[in-house]
Amino acid sequence: MALIDTLNADLKTAMKARDKETLATVRMLKAAVVNEQVKLGHDLNDQEGLAILATELKQRKESLTEFKKANREDLVTPLLQEIKIVERYLPQPLSEDEVSQLVQQVIEQVGATSTKDFGKVMKVLMPQVKGRADGAVVNKLVKAALTK
């Protein structure tokens, strides 16, 4: 089932259940997906859909840290609920160990030997972990592996 179909089905379910929080979040996600479809001029494939959802999740997590810094507990609780809802649509995130194993495989695959090969490794690795691992974590692990 395509992402937009899943969002539409969940939208109807949330409406019937009168679940305002889920309804609002699913509407935001659907709007982001539809906006991207219009921008690109075609239906999104799974990778593009996951990328949008990952972006939405990242934005909410960044907002969460800002709200916590500002002691805005009134905004933290609803945002945590939104994060849980968005995470339902994303695949299970990779652990740091799993990402580290992928990093080693890609380094061997491309024959990387030094930090000069960082770009080659990232170019092959990022499509494999898109939406399943934080880019900053991947970046850190690749740098660590190449400086050994």
Rank of each mutant, 00 (worst) to 15 (best):
E66I: 09
A133L: 12
G41M: 09
T6L: 14
P93D: 01
L64R: 15
L141F: 15
A24G: 10
P127S: 09
K148F: 11
T22Q: 09
R88D: 15
T65P: 02
R18T: 11
E98A: 14
Q104M: 12
V86C: 14
L125C: 03
D46E: 13
V142S: 02
K69T: 14
D10W: 05
E48S: 03
V103D: 00
A14V: 12
E48A: 10
F67M: 14
D74M: 11
R60G: 10
A112E: 03
L94Q: 06
V138Q: 01
K69Q: 14
D134F: 03
L125T: 05
E48N: 01
F118T: 08
R132L: 03
F67V: 12
D46C: 00
I4N: 08
V33M: 12
K58L: 12
T113Q: 14
T13I: 09
A9G: 04
L141P: 02
M28Y: 03
V138K: 07
T22L: 10
R27P: 02
N8S: 01
R88H: 14
L57T: 00
Q105Y: 03
K20L: 11
V142N: 06
L40Q: 10
K84E: 09
M1T: 08
V34G: 04
A2V: 04
T55H: 10
D19E: 01
K120R: 15
V26Q: 06
L90Q: 03
D74L: 07
D5Y: 09
T147L: 06
L75P: 05
T25F: 08
L102V: 09
Q109D: 13
A112G: 05
L125A: 07
D43W: 01
E96M: 06
I107H: 12
L7E: 02
Q37H: 07
K84N: 02
P93W: 05
K39E: 13
N71C: 04
V34E: 05
